[in-house]
Amino acid sequence: MTIKYGATPSQTVGPFFHYALPYANGETLADAQTQGTRIEITGRVLDADGEPVPDAMIEIWQANHAGRYAHAEDSRSEFALDPHFTGFGRTATDATGTFRFTTVRPGRVPGPGNSLQAPHIAIGLFGRGLLNRLVTRLYFADAAENADDPILALVPERRRSTLLAQRLPGEAATYRLDLRLGGNDETVFFAL
């Protein structure tokens, strides 16, 4: 099988994307009518020295509460689509490197073979100094399903905690996950 055209190379999003890419309510995936358990996701993007990255853009992609993606290739009609949930969010970090999303806890989706994946949210990270998008995943530290997740199993055990969002104390279900571009506890990034 020969490739006809070479793929276009990736380039940095640069420092000046803010007026073009983030959009109103891009960080809000769930409204009052969205089905499922509403959650907040927050964290900071930190560089190799632990300094905040104030000019990053973060995108998330996830299944709905039932574990169904709003996309033609997820044709599993036994899991209902939610007309109030697209599964996509986009935001920029603020001056302290902080990001925040409002969404719902995703259901489980199939993995390779007959496996089931633990609830997770795919993350794409862009920024000044990032020539390529960095891809990672958020898992929920309080999810028992993590134990047999086929993707987590590919991550060296001592680094798995970098993918586990911790629930913060308090009434609202808020989960925190920092994204570290280097240093101790560097986040695991994936090659897709």
Binding site: A48, W61, Y69, T86, G129, L130, I151, E186, A191, L192
Partner: peptide, 25 residues
């Protein structure tokens, strides 16, 4: 700007699942 903003650990290769082959419309 890449010096402090690029992972030092190798990327972990993962198989594509429904998560990777679907995307926003």
């Amino acid at each position: 700007s890449t010096v402090r903003r690029s992972p030092s650990q190798p990327l972990v290769a993962i198989p594509h699942t429904l998560t990777e082959v679907t995307g926003p419309s």
